[in-house]
Design a binder for these strands. Structure first.
Lengths: 161, 161
DNA sequence: GTTATTGCAAATGATTTGCACAAGG
DNA sequence: CCTTGTGCAAATCATTTGCAATAAC
């Protein structure tokens, strides 16, 4: 990943500034999804100077360079996914009970793309499959470990304003 | 459709007001996608009194009642799709050249859902597949009738702010 | 030295909301 | 009547942007 990022900076002729370094570090340190605000908080812990503007501007650069992808999890803010570099065709399942997001791959999606190209005369560039689902454990057992964990951690469930 | 709407109003105990009637009429008159602002314009032509607030409130009711579905076409405003009542499992392809949106169905998507339920232990409630694609005609022939039509009509191409 | 980059604060723009008035049942 | 629904204007809130100062190269 480090290599990909370095290459990106070189290719784009970007400068290695301090805020940029810190942001890149924060973005690719883990494989979790995050929002601009969450990234801002994380970055702030390392450097209290970095502004939201720089966060947003850097995110835009990374998205443009295909190092990061914007995904829509159904709420009012954009979520960023750093995992497309390693898993270019993965999809998302969002649990409506606990808000947990599960990434999965399914080869059949590729087959659909091929069929679309043939049938509709378009060349597929990118496909986004989002599945909203309910935790079966919660239905059958009346309890869902993820939901409990979510509540305990105090993390807010995703929802539209 | 008329029946579905009436049923919805009755079931919800909603009142039949003039602005509501006009909005419902405008929403289900065609099967085209639209934004809140486009609906507002359309409604305004029939009744110059109706406010944006009422447009948004009515849209929220319809979405809640599953008569309308919000979709994300990649720009900054919500698009509404009135076709899910008749085609509950359709998907969208967005052409990055001309912005045209093509609806399509593909039985394989159902198979994926079934597989997810089995593999991941979630019950699929709703699936959203969006494909971004390029018009092959434009690539091969250098021209795309849709693109030309879009430009002639003066309709803005969809894009992030 | 130049040109890219940053932080700040103000602007944007879609959507939501408080409130007093109007209208449906 | 009594409650739901409406228009208006103001409020929200994530994201963007203009600008002067600062830092890469």
């Amino acid at each position: 990943m480090r290599a990909r990022v370095d290459d990106f900076i070189r290719r784009k002729g970007l400068r290695r500034t301090k805020p940029r370094q810190i942001i890149l570090e924060a973005v690719f340190a883990r494989d979790e999804h995050f929002t601009a605000e969450e990234l801002y908080d994380r970055v702030r812990r390392t450097d209290a100077e970095t502004s939201r503007a720089t966060i947003y501007r850097t995110l835009a650069l990374l998205v443009e360079g295909d190092l990061l992808r914007e995904i829509d999890l159904g709420d009012d803010q954009t979520t960023y996914d750093p995992n497309f570099v390693n898993k270019p065709t993965h999809n998302h399942l969002v649990c409506i009970d606990c808000g947990r997001v599960v990434e999965f791959e399914d080869t059949e999606v590729e087959a659909i793309n091929a069929r679309i190209t043939r049938r509709l005369g378009f060349k597929v560039l990118r496909q986004t499959l989002k599945i909203e689902a309910a935790c079966e454990q919660l239905r059958t057992n009346g309890r869902c470990p993820n939901l409990i964990a979510t509540r305990l951690s105090g993390k807010r469930l995703r929802r539209k304003r």
